[in-house]
Computed example of a mutant assay.
Amino acid sequence: MNRFVVISGCSGGGKSTLLAEFGRRGHAVVEEPGRRIVKEELESGGRALPWVDGPAFARRAIAVALADRTVAECRPGWVFFDRSLVDAASALQHMTGEPALETLARPHPYHQRVFLAPPWPEIYGTDPERRHGLDAAITEYERLLQDYPVLGYEVVILPKVSVAERADFVLGTL
């Protein structure tokens, strides 16, 4: 059984907050590649930003996700990932038509159950790293809802409950 658990889904759906709760509870967590990349690119004046060069951003997210998996190998117990290689491969495939899900994501599996945060308009917000609107976030969510099962994952939708209740739900489901 794979101990790498993906928390993915709609932007602004509470994923990062949930990961922080897992960290508080002593579990290993891996921050979202996209946010780290955006911060670095903004600081360095780079162009691998989703709103400037989407394919370059997705390729960079793939590289970061692969590196994150390597680092996570040495962590004991459950390791919770804020998004995954599948998210980045899905984005690249959507933008370019490259078969990234099969060639890049399938050979690097995560736990069979993937938890998706559904759209949650009441908590959605933008910030310097998340500039897209809720409509774009919902479109991405719907794409991931289709792409994860294509790779054989069981999608579990996170309930819209408190952070502690969400964490309990995930741990109970695992």
Rank of each mutant, 00 (worst) to 15 (best):
I7G: 03
A67E: 15
R75W: 14
A136T: 07
T139Y: 01
L85A: 08
A88C: 13
T103D: 02
A137K: 07
E32A: 12
K15P: 11
E122H: 06
A72E: 01
G23D: 06
K39I: 14
F4V: 02
V30N: 06
A137Q: 06
Y148P: 08
L145Y: 03
S8F: 03
A20H: 10
E31A: 15
I157G: 07
P99R: 12
D147Y: 09
S162L: 02
K39N: 02
A100M: 05
A56G: 10
I138T: 14
G54S: 13
E40F: 00
P119F: 06
A105Q: 01
R130T: 05
L42I: 13
R106W: 09
R166E: 01
E41Q: 15
A28D: 02
A137W: 07
L101N: 05
E21S: 07
E154N: 07
S16F: 10
W78M: 13
H132R: 06
R25C: 07
R69M: 11
S8I: 03
N2M: 08
R131K: 13
P107W: 06
E98S: 05
Y148C: 04
G13R: 11
F57C: 02
L19I: 11
H108V: 10
C10P: 03
R25S: 02
M95S: 13
P149K: 05
E32N: 04
W78D: 08
P76G: 08
I62A: 00
H94Y: 12
L18V: 07
T103Q: 12
G12I: 07
F80W: 01
P76W: 03
A28T: 15
A136P: 04
D147E: 14
R36G: 15
R131Y: 01
T173Y: 08
R131L: 12
R166D: 02
Q93K: 04
F4Y: 15
T139H: 07
P109G: 07
R24H: 09
C10G: 04
R3M: 09
L171Q: 05
L145R: 14
L66S: 01
